[in-house]
């Protein structure tokens, strides 16, 4: 299958690559199906792209790139709904908000996206432990 994305050209994907977000993503609740691909010439960032809206994708980054000891609690509901059997099933990604100024590029550590890479199920959860920011600078001075 192919998707003509607005910013990343034509992307091919298989049915097996599609990740289902049963609850959508806050602000985009109507979009349930996403694929992930790498940003060209860059190993750090990936794009989480809707296959239902060809204009819509998020730049995502591993939180461990930003903070080695990033941690949060997954509730039983999330573990059950995403069918997570072991920690290795879970991929954690955080959205990146770009800016023309490098120092204004931030990542949202308060709302990690959890993806069960085996079952291809995803959800963005909200971590309310007072430790993480919605706008965490991605690059230090």
């Amino acid at each position: 299958m192919k998707i003509h994305t607005k910013y990343h050209g034509v992307r091919e994907y298989n049915e097996d690559d599609v990740i289902t977000f049963k609850r959508g993503i806050p602000g985009f609740e109507e979009l349930k199906k996403f694929i992930i691909f790498q940003v060209e010439d860059n190993e750090v960032f990936n794009i989480l792209h809707s296959i239902e809206n060809e204009d819509l994708g998020f730049v995502v980054v591993s939180p461990f790139y930003v903070m080695e000891d990033y941690e949060f609690h997954l509730t039983d509901r999330v573990i059950e709904e995403l069918k997570i059997k072991s920690p290795e099933d879970a991929l954690v990604l955080n959205t990146v908000t770009l800016s023309s100024k490098l120092e204004d590029v931030t990542t949202n550590l308060q709302a990690p996206i959890i993806i069960n890479i085996k079952e291809k199920l995803g959800e963005q959860i909200i971590v309310d432990n007072g430790k993480y920011k919605i706008k965490h600078p991605l690059f230090k001075e």
Partner: peptide
């Protein structure tokens, strides 16, 4: 979070 998700939809990733 809803607001930040809207901010995080990509425009141009060439800077990356």
């Amino acid at each position: 979070v809803t607001e930040e998700n809207k901010n995080a939809t990509i425009s141009d990733v060439s800077m990356l």
